[in-house]
């Protein structure tokens, strides 16, 4: 990680994290993974009240997180690009992660020696017919104490811990919340029908109900 301090602001550029290979049994289905454009280059800018301007460049950390995570979780993962037509791909489901919030606190703000990072992702799961079957907000938290290496190292460490926290929650609860493994049975029953997945990643959430946190599935 490179952290540059300039004037009264802090510019921090992160390297993509590496998620350890998890101890789990893969879910035996084929999924598509379509990520939003900002996952390739996500920058969070914030002025800490009365203090300094922060610019935190996560780079493609979010993309790397979900690529690694789902590759570990599913038997087959296809990254669906913006030019790809998901209807032509033999998928049981399409997963669309997005980031809804990135927040952090500095030691000055928390009156501790730690940086803390909160990230809220949203995972939308579509079945073969293109219907939204799950809409799950994933809130993650990481905290790291400042070291002799400086505050930007601690901030990056806190962000990586938050991403690992999100990964842990997804591994533990994804199938329970989204019932994605059942989609393979559903598609087998409807075998022969073409895969119809939404072409527009911005297709939104008419089925969304409440803004619940944690493992609740908002698509019901």
């Amino acid at each position: 990680m490179a952290g540059l301090l300039a004037g009264c602001g802090s510019n921090v550029k992160f390297q993509a994290p590496t998620i350890p290979a998890p101890l789990l049994e893969k879910i035996p289905i084929s999924v598509g993974l379509r990520m939003p454009e900002n996952f390739e280059h996500f920058v969070h800018e914030e002025k800490v009240y009365g203090r300094e301007q922060w610019s935190i460049d996560l780079g493609r950390s979010n993309a790397a997180l979900f690529e690694q995570l789902f590759a570990h979780m599913f038997a087959d993962v296809t990254v669906v690009g913006p030019e790809d037509d998901p209807q032509l791909l033999p998928l049981h489901a399409l997963i669309e992660p997005s980031i809804e919030a990135f927040e952090f606190s500095t030691p000055d703000q928390s009156n501790t020696e730690a940086f803390a990072v909160w990230i809220r992702y949203r995972l939308r799961v579509y079945d073969q017919s293109g219907d939204l079957v799950s809409n799950w907000p994933v809130s993650a938290y990481g905290k790291s104490q400042t070291t002799a290496m400086g505050g930007t190292d601690a901030l990056q460490r806190a962000a990586v811990l938050a991403m690992r926290d999100a990964a842990a929650l997804v591994i533990m609860k994804f199938d329970e919340v989204t019932h994605i493994s059942a989609l393979a049975e559903k598609s087998a029953a409807a075998s022969g029908s073409p895969v119809e997945l939404p072409a527009d990643e911005t297709q939104d959430t008419e089925v969304q109900t409440t803004a619940l946190e944690g493992p609740q599935d908002e698509a019901g």
């Binding site: 350890p20 101890l23 049994e25 690992r164 926290d165 990964a167 842990a168 929650l169 591994i171 533990m172």
Partner: peptide
Amino acid sequence: FPWFEPRTAPAETKNLAKLMARPG
């Protein structure tokens, strides 16, 4: 990973049996 992350680590010894039964 991910069974000893801050979110998932067992908080009590009674959870150890279930943890040890997880794959690997």
